[in-house]
């Protein structure tokens, strides 16, 4: 119980820090401008404007969410150490893993809030042009939250391990690799005798498979999304985030503070 109180205190403080961060406000404004651009592009293009806005809009929300996750997440723990604001906090009876978990929860909560806000704005855009809001779209919005949360966890993990620039580079590399990790599986399925197959399989298993959270095609073309798929993808996201936070906590456990 005492542990929960301390985690909640750090969560609350980090949430407050993030929502008072100007980067967050600017990125939200950037998303709104991008939705406007998507609407302009949809009026120039051949095809249904609602589908184009849905496609571009979903990409924008994920992109903005990931940018916030990377550029605010990479300084989350490292920044506290660097600015020495962590010293009076860790002089209190808090365990280091409680601090890391609290930072993650507070930050991911704030990112989630912005992410939900962006999706609501997107839905309002679509409603304004008379586009029918489908359950596929809502399901896609829900599942893509995990993609952002997973990038948040990656950024927080690297933030406990290394400097902000290295954290940013590593997180971006893993995000891009995670987007294409399904291609490794496709290659292995079509080339079962491939050399270094075992190595590729291990890499595929270790990399975050972000394609589980990308259902944009299904949302745009109104294809069926089974509920089991949502549950499976959510569990995958949850477990992957938990592993990343475990690594972060272990790395931070005995770290000397400057």
């Amino acid at each position: 119980m005492e542990s929960l109180t301390r985690i909640f205190a750090v969560t609350q403080n980090t949430f407050r820090e993030t929502v008072r961060n100007k980067i967050l406000h600017n990125m939200l404004a950037f998303a709104v401008v991008m939705f406007g651009l998507a609407w302009i592009i949809s009026t120039w293009s051949v095809g249904e404007p609602g589908k184009i806005i849905t496609d571009l809009g979903l990409s924008i929300t994920v992109l903005v969410g990931v940018i916030i996750a990377i550029f605010a997440g990479i300084v989350l723990v490292h920044g506290e150490v660097d600015r020495r604001t962590i010293l009076p906090i860790l002089a209190k009876p808090i365990r280091r893993w409680e601090f890391v978990l609290g930072k993650y929860l507070g930050f991911s909560g704030a990112v989630l809030l912005v992410y939900i806000g962006m999706n609501i704005i997107l839905l309002l855009f679509l409603a304004a042009i008379g586009y029918q809001i489908s359950t596929q779209l809502i399901k896609t919005m829900f599942i893509s939250i995990w993609e952002v949360e997973l990038v948040v966890a990656l950024a927080v993990m690297f933030s406990t391990l290394t400097s902000p620039w290295l954290s940013a580079i590593n997180t971006i590399i893993l995000f891009v690799a995670g987007r294409f990790s399904y291609d490794i599986k496709f290659y292995l399925d079509t080339n079962p005798e491939a050399s270094a197959g075992l190595v590729l399989k291990i890499i595929y298993l270790l990399l975050p498979n972000l394609s589980y959270f990308n259902l944009r095609h299904e949302a745009v073309h109104l294809q069926e999304i089974p509920s089991l798929q949502l549950i499976y993808a959510s569990l995958y996201g949850l477990v992957y985030c938990a592993i990343l936070l475990l690594i972060a906590s272990l790395a931070f456990r005995h770290k000397d503070l400057a």
């Binding site: 005492e2 109180t5 301390r6 909640f8 205190a9 750090v10 609350q12 403080n13 407050r16 820090e17 008072r20 961060n21 600015r83 020495r84 604001t85 010293l87 009076p88 906090i89 002089a91 209190k92 009876p93 808090i94």
Partner: peptide, 29 residues
């Protein structure tokens, strides 16, 4: 049972004095 004042105290700039003390108090339960 310990209170600590760091050398050159740096605290979260976005907090108010009351919020900082409240945060410290919460960490002690």
């Amino acid at each position: 049972r310990v209170g600590y004042l760091p050398d050159l105290p740096h605290f979260h700039q976005f907090l108010s004095a009351g919020e900082l003390l409240d945060y410290a108090g919460k960490l002690f339960g």
